[in-house]
Simulated assay, not measured.
Amino acid sequence: MPLGSEQKGIATFYDATGEGNCSYDKSGDLMVAAMNREQYADSAACGQCVDIVGPKGNVRVLIVDQCPDCDKGHLDLSRKAFDKIAEAKDGRVNITWTPVSCDVAGPVKYHFKDGSNPWWTAIQVRNHRLPIQKLEWRRDGDWKSLKRESYNYFVTDSGVGEGRFQLRVTASDGQQLVDSVEKVLDDDTVDGAEQFAPQK
């Protein structure tokens, strides 16, 4: 979904925790939402920020989940986020919404899924300003793509091997960051060096 492209749709609300199909941890910041299945696009929408305008106000949310029964344009918001754009008693309201750059601090982060090892490796990009298009790795030689799963991890069933390797992450607008990682971790996170520039 191109940043800045206005969408029309509806909003509902659910009891969000920050967890969900994107495999993020519970969050203290509950300005979050679930994306309809079509625009979730097998987790491509995970970590996307969206500005929403509703009947009584506007709010910015982070996409953390998928709403499998929602039609295109439909966003299912946390109760807290819904309260900023409409009355809870309305339950279902018309909205316009626009994908935007996230206001994040610090560099991107790479989280290794529990069970990751040199022979089966699953990595999630976190704290990114723009949606993630792809993640690649290399030790020597050519870059190899990691397969994106619908639960928002990039996975290689043969692993990346032992010791130091490089990661290259590409944002939705084509910006790229390259980082060196000392080794595969298990259920742990490592900081990258940089952050994507905001999209104008």
Rank of each mutant, 00 (worst) to 15 (best):
G4E: 12
E6K: 14
G9W: 01
D15Y: 11
A16Q: 06
A16K: 04
C22N: 02
S23L: 11
D25E: 14
L30H: 08
L30I: 09
V32G: 01
A45G: 04
A45R: 05
Q48D: 00
G54V: 06
G57D: 03
G57K: 04
P68R: 07
K72P: 07
G73Y: 10
S78Y: 07
D83V: 00
E87I: 00
A88D: 05
A88L: 11
A88Y: 08
R92I: 07
W97K: 07
G106C: 02
Y110H: 09
H111W: 10
S116D: 06
W119K: 14
R126V: 00
N127V: 03
L130M: 07
L130Q: 06
L130I: 09
P131M: 02
E136W: 04
E136P: 03
R139M: 08
W143K: 07
S145L: 11
R148N: 09
E149C: 05
S150F: 13
Y151C: 00
N152M: 00
Y153R: 04
F154Y: 13
S158W: 15
E162D: 08
F165D: 11
R168P: 03
S172M: 02
D173F: 07
D173P: 06
D173A: 06
G174K: 13
G174I: 12
Q176T: 15
L177I: 15
D179C: 10
K183V: 05
L185C: 01
D186R: 12
D188R: 14
D188I: 08
D191M: 10
